[in-house]
Design a protein around this nucleic acid. Structure first.
Lengths: 336, 336
DNA sequence: CTGTTAGCGCCTTCAG
DNA sequence: CTGAAGGCGCTAACAG
């Protein structure tokens, strides 16, 4: 920047003022000479230095469980869509639902002095995790950092969300309305807060219909397609439900594939429902009945919340997104 | 850090030396006191300051076309898997195949003084793009930055890749071997280098078999499912091929969905093949015959190349990954 | 409106 | 082995 200032025949301060878009008045003459010099030299201000001086890095750290899971990938897209135009860059990392890994990622974000940390990965129930996280984030906030949650999380932070339990109940009711009485559930990983919420919704809907969710009707898995397939195999062997509510679309895809491979006809013999409505849902082996969460918009709301907080606001209530039932070919009347 | 030094009863220099893992000798006594003090205070070194002092930010910028495209999401996962353990954070951004946007993203990366820029987004043929990119990256390299390409790119950079044309030819041959004679191609966006390569492979295979790829057999699209479906509609109307080679899996999913919706039986009436073998391929409406690119491993190789270059190495030859034909249910013998 | 002066927090010669 | 001093590139009072 010294070079730019020299080339423009002004002091570094003046150069800095025009280059940083400061509100401080600068004559038009000086301004244009600086701009020209910067362009001629291909000058690119060093943001590290700027961040050090201003205590604002224009950087946001995002923690997801797995970038390659479409659920998270879509949310990241939304975050990026609003952060980018505001000239903020995103650090993206996958925690693999591992407490130790997640904590070290968050610590790294703090070290990088990100302006905000977005926890889109659902909270873990691992012992000690919450305390450690709280400790790290306390220091982060003391440094002026902002924290936003985008999932069920025991850590108290401004949050953009949607009603997991309610949505799960909604789709379960859809199956009940179709006449199903034995409805199984493919639950998510037990250490995730979100798994519990979705399972609760499923149970609540059953209870309200006077049905019982015996323990043999719930099978825990992992949020993946293969795991969904194997969990379905166990569930069918044990309880032979006529309908299955999966805790996410990926598991539902696995269920569809497994049932089809077994020669089960869908939805004539068994109905299957998912959760999230990722784009593939409409292209699955059988078009999937599911709950649509507008993921990209959800991500955008998350970033908008970040910027509001960064600007000193404190939105009340926190934003949220409305899930919606999407009925496709994988659900139908219960077999008679 | 001053606080840590004070608490440990040493100078900042000494504290810095132990906290930064410097090779400079420090007595065991001092070392342990510093470590203890840092832990007690929950000290997290400011990497911005460190980066400013060392000219190494431990940060890598990644440009993809779209994070929410599984092809890129999987690659990012691989990059992350090796960058994370080496304590480097990833900036991830989507260019949307827009030259102006991509250039501004790259500019932001140099402003953030990333140590390396990974171009996993395929090169654009937009006029002026290459020159502008070259200018920016030249300055970046003068600053000590490293550039790695992970796709067909006119910009000359160390590259980890795979044989796009060859793989495309391979899968086309598979269809020819099944007796197909009228084979259509769903090409990618014409402004992408990778689209041309994959189309070339398709054409080469046809030519070698003495078949002709009339212009009506190739339909350009966009690398998405919906676009794949509409391109398929146009292609079927116009040329009614008995087999379709899509430039990526997403387009193939769209093709499957469209054909199925039209009551076309797959593969009895029409065979469909994809490219990439994203995880969903096995769970699509019809399990997809495709070319497997080990995407996560590919991503890992990209990051490893980055670190080799950062360490001053100049690997020769550049690493690459071997595609493999995966035959599933979407391809079968040509109808007689 | 412009320039001078201090740092931001850390690393790194350079003397001790 | 330890500490003092200077600087990485930029911003932000503070005088002019």
């Amino acid at each position: 920047m010294r070079d730019v200032a020299r080339a423009a025949g002004v002091s570094v301060s003046t150069a800095s003022r025009v280059l940083s878009g400061s509100a401080h008045p600068v004559s038009e003459a000086a301004r244009s000479r600086v701009t020209a010099a910067a362009a001629a030299l291909g000058f690119e201000p060093n943001r590290l230095a700027r961040a050090l001086a201003t205590a604002r890095s224009r950087t946001i750290g995002v923690v997801v469980h797995d970038v390659s899971d479409p659920y998270f990938a879509d949310i990241i897209r939304g975050l990026e869509d609003v952060a980018g135009p505001r000239d903020h860059a995103l650090f993206v990392t996958s925690s693999d639902r591992d407490a130790a890994k997640e904590l070290s990622l968050v610590r790294a974000f703090v070290a990088h002095r990100v302006d905000a940390i977005v926890l889109v990965a659902s909270g873990l129930t691992t012992p000690g995790y919450l305390d450690d996280l709280t400790g790290i984030l306390k220091r982060f906030k003391d440094l002026g950092g902002v924290v936003v949650a985008m999932s069920e999380h025991a850590y108290p932070a401004p949050r953009v969300g949607f009603d997991n339990a309610g949505s799960s109940a909604m789709i379960t009711r859809h199956l009940i309305d179709l006449g199903h009485r034995r409805i199984g559930h493919l639950a998510g990983p037990p250490e995730l807060a979100v798994s519990a919420s979705r399972e609760d919704g499923y149970r609540r809907a059953l209870a309200e219909a006077g049905l019982e969710a015996g323990p043999d009707l719930v099978e825990c898995g992992w949020f993946g397609m293969e795991e969904g397939a194997s969990a379905t195999a166990r569930l069918m062997d044990r309880a032979a439900p006529t309908a299955i509510v999966a805790a996410n679309d990926l598991m539902a895809f696995g269920a569809l594939r497994h049932l089809l491979d077994q020669g089960v006809s869908i939805p004539d013999q068994v109905s299957v429902a998912g959760f999230d409505d990722i784009e593939f849902a409409a292209y699955a082996s059988v078009p999937l009945t599911t709950v649509r969460i507008p993921l990209t918009q959800f991500g955008r709301l998350g970033a908008e919340l970040v910027f509001e907080l960064l600007a000193g606001g404190s939105p009340d209530p926190w934003p949220s997104v409305t899930p919606e039932l999407v009925i496709r070919g994988s659900s139908g009347r219960a077999p008679t």
